Computed example of a mutant assay.
Amino acid sequence: MQAQTARPRPRRLEASERRREIIEVSTQLIAERGYRGVSLDNIAEACGITKQGLLHHFRSKAELLVAVLEYRDEVDLAESTRRAPRSLTRAGFREEIRESARRSIARPGIVQLYAVLSAEALDPEHPAHAYFIRRLNWTRELLRQGAVSWHPDPEGFAIELLSFIDGLQLNWLRDPSIDLEARALQYVDRILAEYS
């Protein structure tokens, strides 16, 4: 008869600390396995809590997935701000695109989660619908402001760049042999050369 592995006793954490732990563990598991390869049971087990304990903090997997995407945005913004003041000068803009591509390459599961949820969230009833509207508006405005000093149509540029990057990432998910970083930089270099 095989010995059963004892489940680790849950550590007592404040609610905010437990939520943060669940989000961080979920982010790591999704990055490793893809979001379809991770269940709430997997996440709860990795956190040393029950599924019911997890559902006390997040009412559904969809709600947790939105929290993972918000956490990813928070971490990405912190990394970007730490490297340099938030500025999209021409040189800074190119470097931001490079770093964004590298982050995507390092965590294809998170990119897949973003791509799938963004399509599902076109439905206004989807729990992630408001998140994607907020994120679109925020990134579009950030790019528009950064391009005001050098691009004749900053609003059009922001929409065009976001559309290109989203499309490139989808194709990279389908065919990982596509060099995501190189293709993103080639595109950006063409734009920068056109408006030099």
Results as ranks from 00 to 15, higher is better:
I22G: 06
R19C: 01
E32M: 05
R20Y: 08
A84T: 09
P10E: 10
E24T: 09
S80Q: 14
E21W: 03
P85M: 12
S16P: 10
S39G: 13
S16F: 10
L13I: 00
R11K: 13
R33L: 01
G37V: 05
S26K: 02
S80K: 08
T50G: 06
L13M: 11
I30V: 12
H57D: 14
S26I: 00
I22F: 02
A78L: 00
R72T: 15
E79R: 15
R11M: 14
A46R: 13
S16W: 08
L69K: 04
R59F: 01
V38Q: 13
A62V: 10
R82C: 03
A44D: 05
N42D: 15
T81S: 10
R9A: 14
L40D: 08
E21L: 15
R83T: 00
A62N: 14
L64G: 07
R18Y: 06
H57F: 06
A46S: 14
V25S: 05
L64H: 07
C47T: 04
A84F: 06
T50V: 01
R19W: 07
D73P: 04
I30N: 11
S16Y: 11
T50K: 00
H56R: 14
P85R: 12
E17M: 09
L13G: 03
Y35T: 00
E79P: 00
V75E: 04
I43H: 11
R33E: 07
P10V: 11
S60Y: 02
A78V: 11
L55Y: 13
R11I: 10
E21P: 02
L40R: 11
P85Q: 05
T81P: 00
D76M: 14
E45N: 05
K61D: 06
Q28H: 13
I49G: 01
L69Q: 08
L55D: 05
A62L: 10
L40V: 07
R72K: 10
A78Y: 11
E45T: 10
A78P: 07
S39N: 06
Q28R: 15
I43A: 04
S80G: 02
R11G: 04
R86I: 05
L29W: 03
A31M: 09
I43M: 01
Q52H: 12
S60H: 02
Q52V: 15
H57K: 04
R18P: 03
G37K: 05
D73K: 10
R18K: 09
R36W: 09
L77D: 14
E63Q: 13
V75N: 02
I30D: 02
R82G: 00
V38L: 06
E70P: 01
R83D: 03
N42K: 11
A67R: 15
L69E: 02
E74H: 11
V25D: 02
A15P: 14
G34Q: 00
E14C: 00
K61C: 05
A15E: 09
D73I: 09
R18H: 01
A46C: 03
V68L: 09
H56W: 08
L77G: 07
R9W: 12
A31T: 07
E63L: 13
C47G: 02
V68R: 03
L69M: 11
R12F: 06
L13K: 07
C47R: 11
R20F: 08
I30M: 02
R72C: 12
E21F: 03
A67P: 05
P8K: 01
E63T: 13
T50M: 02
K61H: 00
R33I: 04
Y71D: 15
S16C: 05
A46F: 05
R18D: 06
A84Y: 01
